[in-house]
């Protein structure tokens, strides 16, 4: 499945994507909240791109805008070489799916597992007989490691990890080639998290699906991703191979983000020199001029306030947006 029959190295090509939300600030006044402000990245078929950054930086909005749950304010998104528009998104829905953080709220508690997973099959008419539907559902359940006897049970009877499996089986029903995973393991207990991470990795090996994997746990993202993009206030500030990013971070924000990670190893953790950032992230309604990070950056200069740096290649596909590093 997912044979590559388009003329690009990339499955997903995002260029200068913008998503502004109008926010009321008075009776007659609305201002744009720049949730995503000129984001560009590419993903190869079968690759996992991790997307990290603090809450509110625009990760979810990137995912939702790609799937056209929002109409983007600007920029382009090419999928398999073809530009995605309001017109052709209907036909592409089958190719792109989204998995959510909260397995509790995204599944209908009054539906059986079989019907939850079978629903997209119904919507896209992907079977000819009841038996075929049943077989397809069982196959999907097997793929994500669910027991066949669970088919007749209700979602609320399951624990978090199992619900996440149900959600993923459902998104796989339409045989997508691209899945946006929005914090899919963040709500799970540590001992369950590893089960679900492994399932994502195994599915990719088996089916060749491509992931945009959004999470805030940097160790989890490092583990699952081939490449990682770091977001801050609606922009990507750095993007590189996962190991490269962790070993040689360049952007001042990435540096402090990585140094803030608490590694589960007391000697390493206690030796870690943290780069503590002062203050909070500015509001996206009140973006600093120039580089979005300059208000907290220890390397900021006059230039940083004048003009926003764009991503430049520092070799080996390691892109950084910073004037001074």
């Amino acid at each position: 499945m997912n044979t590559v029959n388009f003329n690009s190295e990339y499955l997903v090509e995002v260029e200068d994507l913008k998503m502004y939300f109008p926010v009321k600030t008075g009776f007659f006044k609305t201002v744009p909240l720049k949730a995503v402000d000129g984001v560009s990245f590419n993903i190869r078929p079968g690759e996992t791109l991790g997307l990290v950054g603090e809450s509110g930086c625009g990760k979810t909005t990137v995912g939702r805008t790609l799937l056209r749950l929002y109409e983007p304010t600007g920029g382009t998104f090419r999928f398999k070489g073809e530009e995605v528009t309001a017109k052709n998104i209907g036909a592409l829905r089958k190719e792109m799916q989204m998995v959510f953080q909260d397995p509790y709220s995204s599944l209908n508690p009054r539906m059986t597992v079989e019907d939850i997973i079978g629903e997209p099959l119904d919507v896209h008419k992907l079977y000819n007989s009841k038996e075929e539907r049943h077989e397809k559902v069982l196959h999907l359940m097997e793929l994500v490691g669910l027991n066949a006897e669970h088919a007749t049970r209700y979602a609320h009877e399951f624990s978090g990890g199992q619900r996440q499996r149900i959600g993923i089986a459902r998104s796989l029903a339409v045989d997508p080639s691209f899945i946006v995973c929005d914090e899919p393991v963040s709500a799970l207990d540590v001992s369950i998290q590893a089960q679900v991470i492994n399932m994502f990795e195994e599915l990719q090996d088996k089916l060749g699906v491509t992931y945009l994997f959004i999470a805030h746990d940097l160790l989890v993202v490092h583990h699952i991703s081939d490449r990682i993009a770091v977001m801050y206030l609606g922009r990507i500030v750095e993007i590189a191979d996962a190991d490269e990013l962790n070993e040689n971070p360049i952007h001042p924000y990435t540096l402090s983000l990585l140094s803030a990670v608490c590694v589960p190893d007391p000697v390493k953790a206690k030796a870690n020199k943290r780069i503590i950032l002062e203050g909070d992230v500015p509001s996206p309604l009140n973006m600093p001029s120039g580089c979005p990070f300059r208000t907290r950056c220890r390397y900021a200069t006059e230039q940083c306030a004048q003009e926003a740096p764009s991503l430049t290649d520092r070799g080996n596909e390691h892109l950084v947006a910073c004037w001074n590093k």
Binding site: D189, I197, V263
Partner: peptide, 24 residues
């Protein structure tokens, strides 16, 4: 022991995690 093996850590990035099976 199981918990420590199931965590992504700086030294097991290239390996599959070893989860604890079962449910809470």
């Amino acid at each position: 022991k199981g918990l420590l093996k199931s965590l992504p850590n700086t030294d097991n990035m290239k390996e599959r995690l070893v989860p604890i099976s079962g449910t809470p």
